[in-house]
Write a protein that binds this DNA or RNA. Structure first.
Lengths: 143, 143
DNA sequence: TGCACACCCTGTAGTTGCTACAGGGTCAAG
DNA sequence: CTTGACCCTGTAGCAACTACAGGGTGTGCA
């Protein structure tokens, strides 16, 4: 199959496929006479693997490491476990800070008030207050 | 004050300060004889405002819009309200997908199992299964 | 035969929000 | 008089793509 078909099968843009090849994640494919890339089932599998890992927000670098394990099944897999663990920690940390963020934004929201000019806008007021280091609604929420 | 003092006062790297200036977020400061940037209290306020907005994950572009409102207090502030609202939606969407991610990673974690070779690794197994489109632990979790 | 159109190629530049140099100038203390 | 901390400009790098520009290829239709 050609790059377009591969991309479609995996739900990936053709540019992204070429990008993965350039990044060393997808093996260099054979070329047909006219120079078009020719892919087989193994390429599709590999691409699906990459996309699944990306859906888990695993970095391209880490995916490269995982692909190394797929290629060498006799290696110790402790690193795989640690990789997933690290990934989970990252996600949980981000989750925590996003939750704080949500609280802050939610408390800002609706503060706009009745006076619909920027000078009287509650939101802008709060943001400027923060710039002065005063207690603002969004930081007060931390407690 | 010079750029180093400003940066320290706002908790920002000097390179970042110059970057904000180049991006049009910080007004161009006066220069002393030797060409050093000279800042005053208004610059510090402005910088603090920017950092606070960044802490709320507001994009530099949106911050520029907010600064426009600060400069023109008589404008209608409806856009400010909408901006915060959009920001909140973004954060909530990201939160949702991160939560799904956490579930998926958590279910992968610990699947490594007893056999400590990559070929027998449960995690790798699951990831490869996903590449085949089979039900894998992390996607089965969706229900 | 001619041409439109969809697909493919390479290579480079753009996105966001910084960060990290390289290669220089300035200034006060020891 | 030299060391060191600070400042300057300008450019390149990060992640993970995305979007061209400027070309070639191949199929269908009139």
């Amino acid at each position: 199959m050609r790059i377009g078909a591969l991309g479609q099968a995996a739900g990936v843009d053709v540019e992204t496929v070429r990008f993965y090849e350039k990044s060393g994640l997808l093996p260099i494919p054979a070329r047909s006479e006219n120079g078009y890339r020719m892919y087989g089932a193994t390429h599709l599998e590999r691409l699906a693997f990459i996309r699944h890992c990306r859906a888990l927000d695993i970095s391209l670098n880490d995916i490269k490491r995982l692909l190394g394990f797929v290629a060498q099944p006799n290696e110790d897999c402790g690193d795989i476990d640690r990789l997933i663990d690290t990934q989970l920690s990252k996600v949980r940390a981000r989750l925590k800070s996003l939750k704080a963020l949500e609280r802050q934004l939610a408390s800002l929201k609706g503060r706009c008030g009745e006076n619909h000019t920027a000078g009287e806008c509650g939101i802008l007021h709060e943001l400027v207050a923060a710039a002065h280091g005063e207690a603002c609604a969004c930081h007060a929420d931390k407690a």
